[in-house]
């Protein structure tokens, strides 16, 4: 595994004040790959990223970058770039000096420095803004400066900590495309931390889903989206209806159970349905419509059933089921993602 690994985390245990937030984590990342660390807040993704950057000393384990053990290398000698969630621009320095900061630390000759800063500023589309101070820029522009500042030193690895979370929805989509383009152009290895599954699916070559300091599942976006490995991942990527399978029955968290609609493989532990996979108006189960929301193309229904709340979605063109009515529904195993033991 470590033959191909560019960044290799082996048995990493991380924490603050002796309390472990991440336990014995193994992760290998190939050169040029864009890997997203995805998970809810507190799952350890940011802690992991800080350890890679060298801002947090691991309690145990080893970090290798390009075949060299960097576990105890100080952060300022790792040559790893980081784009902060808050951008962390130097408020007293102009755009030019912010971007030039790393090059000045390397004592880059003047003409080369000017050329590279100009190049980086142009790359993020901010030519002409060099003399502005950070507070004179919009959020999106500050984000671009942070990116230019991180890549101008040609880091071996670029870390991004929720870089788009402070932008509005439209700008976020735009920057997402931009980031992908930059990553292709520069061929740089990136580790991207986010809690937004849509962002991770759109950007990453590979997604690492984390929970409580452990890796829950790791794989290409399609695999994560279509075949979640655990019920947690299933819920996280939008399977709203996840039930345990035992003794030929579907079991809800509240202890209620209903017989399966059709037989499943013996090693199936969980079945998970996205809202549109729930059959509505027919099927062996019954529930009461608690509420509906019109989504344009489709209508989402919240149904109160013996298994607890069920979320279903049906094309808007079909006849509506009014709130308060009893409706039949089905959970066909063939339309579900099966999670095996």
């Amino acid at each position: 595994m470590s033959d191909a690994a560019f960044l290799d985390l082996a048995g990493m245990t991380l924490g603050y004040d002796g309390k472990a937030a991440v336990e014995s984590l193994d992760l290998a990342i190939k050169e040029g790959e864009l890997v997203a660390l995805l998970g809810p807040s507190g799952c350890g993704k940011t802690t992991t990223m800080r350890a890679i950057a060298g801002l947090l000393q691991p309690m145990g384990g080893r970090i290798t970058l390009g075949g060299r053990d960097i576990t105890s290398l100080p952060a300022n000698r790792r040559n790893i770039g980081l784009v902060f969630q808050s951008y962390a621009l130097f408020p007293h320095l102009s755009v030019f000096e912010n971007v030039a900061f790393g090059l000045r630390r390397q004592r880059t000759p003047k003409d080369e420095l000017e050329r590279r800063v100009a190049g980086a500023v142009a790359m993020v589309g901010l030519t002409g803004f060099e003399r502005r101070l950070p507070k004179e820029l919009s959020g999106g522009q500050q984000q671009r400066v942070a990116l230019a500042r991180a890549v101008v030193v040609r880091p071996r690895l670029l870390l991004l900590d929720e870089p788009l979370s402070n932008l509005d929805a439209r700008l976020r989509l735009e920057m997402r495309t931009e980031l992908r383009r930059l990553q292709r152009e520069l061929g740089i290895t990136m580790v991207y931390v986010t809690h937004d599954q849509e962002e991770a699916l759109a950007l990453a070559d590979r997604i690492v889903v984390m929970r409580d300091g452990k890796i829950e599942q790791m794989g290409p976006p399609e695999a994560i989206y279509e075949t979640p490995a655990t019920d947690f991942v299933a819920r996280f990527v939008g399977f709203e209806n996840v039930f345990e399978v035992r003794d030929g029955q579907l079991r809800a968290g509240n202890g209620a159970a209903l017989p399966l609609q059709a037989p499943v493989d013996g090693d199936t532990a969980w079945l998970a349905w996205r809202p549109h996979a729930v059959e509505l108006g027919q099927g062996p189960y019954e529930g009461r419509v608690r509420g509906t929301s019109y989504l344009g193309q489709s209508v989402e229904y919240l149904i109160e059933s013996a298994l607890g709340p069920i979320k279903a979605e049906a094309p808007a063109a079909l006849p509506r089921h009014e709130a308060g009515r009893t409706v039949a529904f089905g959970l066909p195993p063939a339309a579900a993602a099966a999670i095996t033991r």
């Binding site: 300022n76 040559n79 962390a88 130097f90």
Partner: peptide, 21 residues
């Protein structure tokens, strides 16, 4: 915010430089 010093460190400054710069 303390992350501007972290940013400086990741760009190659040592702790003392990060403070003064």
């Amino acid at each position: 915010r303390s992350d501007i010093e972290e940013a400086a460190v990741l760009l190659g400054a040592n702790r003392v430089q990060a403070f003064f710069l």
